[in-house]
Amino acid sequence: GALPANLDDMKVAELKQELKLRSLPVSGTKTELIERLRAYQDQ
């Protein structure tokens, strides 16, 4: 599914939920979580 547009405004817990939905690792800082989601979306 498409990512929420406001990733930077989301809480870390919400970002981790998005990562879990995509079976991605949820470790790292908020910035790393956002980068991981964006990289996944670009595939």
Rank of each mutant, 00 (worst) to 15 (best):
Y40N: 13
L19F: 01
A2T: 13
G28Y: 01
N6H: 01
D9G: 13
T31C: 14
K11P: 07
G28A: 00
D42V: 12
L15K: 02
K16M: 13
L19T: 03
E14A: 09
Q17W: 02
R38Q: 05
D42Y: 04
T29S: 09
T29W: 01
S27T: 06
R22E: 07
E32Q: 10
R36S: 05
Q43H: 10
A5W: 01
Q17H: 00
D9L: 10
Q43G: 15
L37Y: 05
V12W: 04
L24G: 02
L3S: 10
I34P: 07
K16A: 04
L24E: 02
A2K: 15
R36L: 03
V26L: 14
M10I: 05
R22G: 02
Q41L: 12
L7R: 01
L33K: 04
T31K: 08
L21G: 09
S27A: 14
G28T: 00
A39F: 08
K11T: 07
E14P: 01
Q43E: 15
K11A: 13
G28V: 00
S23A: 11
E32L: 02
N6T: 12
M10W: 03
G28R: 00
K20M: 11
L3M: 10
I34C: 08
G28K: 00
L24T: 04
P4T: 14
A5C: 01
D42P: 12
T31Y: 06
V26K: 06
N6F: 03
L24Y: 00
L3W: 08
E32I: 07
L7W: 03
R38C: 05
D8M: 08
T29M: 03
L19D: 01
E14C: 04
D8R: 12
V12D: 04
E35H: 05
E32R: 04
L15N: 01
R38A: 14
L24K: 03
Q41R: 12
L19E: 02
T29N: 05
R22W: 02
R36K: 06
L37W: 03
L19G: 02
E18C: 06
K20Q: 10
L21A: 11
L33P: 03
R36V: 04
M10K: 07
M10C: 03
P4Y: 15
N6M: 13
V12M: 14
K11C: 08
E32T: 08
T29C: 06
Q41P: 12
D9C: 11
E35V: 07
D8H: 11
A2C: 09
V26E: 13
K11S: 10
D8E: 15
E32W: 00
G1S: 03
D42L: 09
L3V: 12
E18K: 04
V12R: 07
